Amino acid sequence: MVTCYLRYVIDPLKLDDFEHYARLWIPLVERFGGAHHGYFLPHEGPNNIAVALFSFPTLAAYEAYREKAADDPDCQDAMRHYEKTQCYLSYERSFMRPVLQAYG
Rank of each mutant, 00 (worst) to 15 (best):
M1G: 05
V2P: 03
V2Q: 02
T3L: 07
T3H: 10
C4Q: 07
C4K: 08
Y5G: 12
Y5H: 14
R7E: 13
I10M: 05
D11V: 02
P12K: 00
L13I: 03
L13A: 09
K14N: 06
K14Q: 07
K14F: 13
L15K: 06
D17E: 15
F18M: 03
F18R: 04
H20Q: 11
H20C: 12
Y21P: 04
Y21L: 05
A22M: 09
L24R: 14
W25L: 12
W25M: 09
I26T: 15
P27G: 03
L28K: 12
L28S: 08
V29C: 10
E30H: 06
R31Q: 13
F32V: 04
F32P: 08
G33L: 03
G33N: 07
G34N: 00
G34P: 04
A35W: 07
A35G: 06
G38R: 01
Y39S: 02
F40Y: 12
F40N: 06
L41I: 09
L41M: 14
P42R: 02
H43W: 12
E44S: 06
G45K: 03
P46I: 01
N47T: 02
N48H: 04
A50S: 11
V51A: 12
L53K: 14
F54Q: 03
F56T: 01
F56R: 01
F56E: 01
F56V: 04
P57R: 03
T58E: 01
T58V: 02
A60L: 01
A61G: 00
E63C: 02
E63V: 02
E63S: 05
A64Y: 03
Y65C: 00
Y65N: 00
R66H: 02
E67C: 05
K68G: 03
K68F: 05
K68S: 10
A69V: 10
A70F: 03
D71H: 15
D71R: 13
D72L: 08
D72Q: 10
D72I: 08
D74Q: 15
D74W: 13
C75D: 07
C75E: 11
D77H: 12
D77M: 14
D77L: 14
A78M: 11
R80D: 13
R80M: 12
R80G: 07
E83W: 11
K84Y: 05
T85G: 13
Q86A: 15
C87Y: 14
C87D: 13
C87L: 11
Y88C: 01
Y88T: 10
Y88L: 00
Y88E: 04
L89V: 09
E92H: 13
R93S: 12
M96S: 11
M96Y: 14
V99K: 07
V99S: 07
V99H: 11
L100C: 06
L100A: 14
Q101Y: 01
A102E: 05
